[in-house]
Amino acid sequence: MTAATSNRNIPELGAIRFENVTKTFGSVTALDDVSVSFAANKINVLLGLSGSGKSTMLRHINGLHKPSKGGVWTLGTPVHSAGAATLRGLRNDVGMIFQQFHLVESMSVLENVCTGKLGSLRGPRFGLWSYPRAVREAAMEQLARVGLADKAFQRAGTLSGGQQQRVAIARALIQRPTVLLADEPVASLDPLSSAGVIELLTRISREENLTVICSLHQVPIALEFADRIVGLNAGRVVLDRPAAGMTHDDVDGIYAPIPVDERTELAG
């Protein structure tokens, strides 16, 4: 925790660094000798086909996965060797949002947002009343920020997909993170809700100077949203450059077909 905090404002270290990371699940190689680093306060978009390793990469940043080989440093913390307590401290500084929102549908919107603060609270919590008043107020402020204060006491499962994703963003923001991971945040949404969620993510990331790593499927959104684009194909980085001035054609190479022998390997 102290390491993470003391390093969070030293951009030259790179906010996040992958060094020769290989990750295998059984016989499947999800990441293949990946070395890449992400500077602080920038919006980075990962592009690539399903199964190219985008999610696996994101999940290494907060230690949901540990590398089979190589090392990952996030905010100065060596994630590959970190123990449970260190990881908890690091995760407190790293917010994450997911394709399927991952809200408890039977809980109120407000309580869902409060769960984002669990990393800095001690002990188990059950029910809205069990969170300190300051946390509930902070949750309300974040809900107002994503435009859903009026839904605070509604059950999360009754909201639309776009609204649920905004609740999930509020849940990540209540952590006051320095890094925000977004795993295909708009893949389950219709185009209109997608635009709203991306617009919100962009605005908040700029306001808070967040380091964003976001995986996406929609190239046009990526080109508009990103400072930098990293392309993955079969677990390898095949493209890595600033988004400014990039065109559709520049990105197309990422989606080149994988050689047949490797594809079967991936499918297995």
């Binding site: 990881l87 995760r91 997911f98 408890v104 039977s106 769960t115 669990l118 002990g123 059950f126």
Partner: peptide, 26 residues
């Protein structure tokens, strides 16, 4: 999913169990 979300926010096992698992199966 919800358990993973709390885990990725730094929640301990006991915390994600009481905050996501128990409410879901109540």
């Amino acid at each position: 999913g919800p358990a993973e979300a709390v885990r990725s926010a730094g929640g301990s096992r006991l915390q994600w169990i009481t905050s996501t698992v128990i409410p879901q199966v109540m």
